[in-house]
């Protein structure tokens, strides 16, 4: 028990060492969680949109992202209505 509390005290620097580890590891884990949540949400939205008009939308989107990589209005002029 003493060995553990000795270790956790970090030679009197516990108030500096542990917050540093918690902040860094917490930020790194938090960023992964947020990114994966957004990725899942956007994938679901894409699947729903493609299901509404599968053939035409998929072809158009693929071409729009391939020519400019940017899904903006300027990409649309290149696609026939």
């Amino acid at each position: 028990m003493d060995a553990i509390s000795d270790y956790l005290a970090m030679g009197g620097f516990a108030a500096y060492v542990w917050p540093a580890y918690v902040i860094t590891v917490g930020a790194m884990v938090g960023m992964i969680v947020v990114t994966l949540r957004d990725l899942r949400r956007d994938r679901k939205a894409l699947a729903e949109l493609e299901a509404q008009n599968p053939m035409r939308n998929a072809r158009r989107a693929a071409r729009a992202t391939q020519t400019t990589g940017i899904a903006g209005p300027e990409g649309d002029d290149r696609i026939d209505p």
Binding site: T35, D42, R43, A45, L46, Q52, R60, A61, A71, P73
Partner: peptide
């Protein structure tokens, strides 16, 4: 890689919404 995948999917979603 995860963030790039998300960005690519997100851009496709936005372009589809505009087209729609």
């Amino acid at each position: 890689i995860w963030r790039m995948q998300r960005e690519i999917v997100g851009r496709r979603v936005r372009s589809l919404r505009v087209l729609q």
